[in-house]
Design a protein around this nucleic acid. Sequence first.
DNA 1: AGCCTTTGACCAGCG
DNA 2: TCGCTGGTCAAAGGC
Length: 230
Amino acid sequence: DGAKNLMVKAKSINLQDQAPQHETSHEEDTGSQQNLEEDQKGSFPPLRMGMVSEDGYNWRKYGQKQVKGSEFPRSYYKCTHPNCEVKKKVERSHDGQLTEIIYKGSHDHPKPQPSRRSAFSLNEISEMPDGLGSYVKVEGGSVWRNLQQGSKDKCGTDWRADSLEMTSSTSVVTELSDPLSTAQGKHLNVLESADTPELSSTLASHDDEEDGPTQGSISLGDDVEDVESE
DNA sequence: AGCCTTTGACCAGCG
DNA sequence: TCGCTGGTCAAAGGC
């Protein structure tokens, strides 16, 4: 139970790759917006509505709020698995651009295997914005940070190792408090974390199932590791 | 028929 | 204590 205090925060900016609807249509209001939505749906049949950065698990949306400091609404998702109470906060712009993802908790079950390798592309999209800043945060005192340069070089492999190291010591970084800049694609992805040290222990305990890199669980063995390691 | 999204209301924490 | 903010609930509707 205690192992659920894990929070992963992944922020990515300017996901042009995943956003096919370029900017040509400066969506003003209903008109163009509708077109965009329809376009999206039509282009992504197997996915849910807005294709929320799929990570291999099934999520059910249970709320949405406009948080202060962010110009875009934040959506709240919960893992649909019976005994899994992992939650996820997703923040995305109207363009469908994914600005921030926050995972909270750890799955006590393997990935449901969405539908073949399709997840691959999704993973790439969601977790590897490619060249764009992204960082992962774990609630509990550890911070996984992937900067523009950092993510490219290391990312995947050391990823967890880093997190564990950082777990021991609470790292605090100043986060960019400018939503606009963030949306713009500021590489300055800093974040702060500060929490109860106890959680660090929990983190270590379930580190194996965290995102499942080690375990791999599924036969595919895909996981972010491969993807991120390029 | 079942699951999911949407959406406003409710609740808790904080200054 | 009040107001603000973030997170969750639950009814309604859609697919």
